[in-house]
Design a binder for these strands. Sequence first.
DNA 1: ACAACAATTGAACAAACGTTCAAATGTATT
DNA 2: AATACATTTGAACGTTTGTTCAATTGTTGT
Lengths: 120, 120
Amino acid sequence: MEYEEMKDACPCQEVHTDLLDRVRAEMPDETSLYEAAELFRLFGDSTRIRILSVLSCAEVCVCDLSQTLNMTPSAISHQLKLLRQGKLVKCRREGKSIFYSLADDHVRTIIRQGLEHVEE
Amino acid sequence: MEYEEMKDACPCQEVHTDLLDRVRAEMPDETSLYEAAELFRLFGDSTRIRILSVLSCAEVCVCDLSQTLNMTPSAISHQLKLLRQGKLVKCRREGKSIFYSLADDHVRTIIRQGLEHVEE
DNA sequence: ACAACAATTGAACAAACGTTCAAATGTATT
DNA sequence: AATACATTTGAACGTTTGTTCAATTGTTGT
């Protein structure tokens, strides 16, 4: 009811109704977009993208990450947990150390894409 | 001093020094990574990615966005401001309305990439 | 000049976030 | 069993974030 009134109140509505219908038809479903946002959110923090960037080069242990990025193992570990949950990285234990690597090549691609966009 | 001790305390260091040197050499510079993170952060919110997704289909006014996404013009406008600052969208005025569109094709590409990754 | 409308803005607020710290877990060494 | 070390975990903290609300700006029509 309210919504209908709002619709009428906006002159745009009259003009752009078919446009919006087309947009609605073409749009990816809400769930996919929500998941894509969740994915990008993981890349959207400098600590996490630096971790992923290191893992783009090599498989390394938490200790190495901690040294390379000059952050505490705890801070790194918390972020690794998020990256693991998001299926962006995988890990394997070797003695006391745990080695992390990218879960798949998509991750590398996405980072490259982002870097390409900013380096212009 | 403390840092040196930490270094010695970690057996990894001895083992992976050359690896880490190689990683450091290959890594993009801090600034690029930071900017890439900032870019991805913009895609990492469901409201913003939905806005961008609409703009991938068509140039629309704030009013249209507000209706399509079922959110207040104010909320939309706040997010559009961030997208404008990040150079992801551009706008032009036409009478009382302001029409938004994607700033360039990269944006479309990045969204597509993200969607591809989640739809698997 | 005034009313109507599209859009923007700033302050306020709750929710989500990232790091720190202390404690815990798991593995190898003695 | 006990120690040492790599990593993880949970609680706490200050900071950032997204939305709401009320007020404002800019444009059109009367």
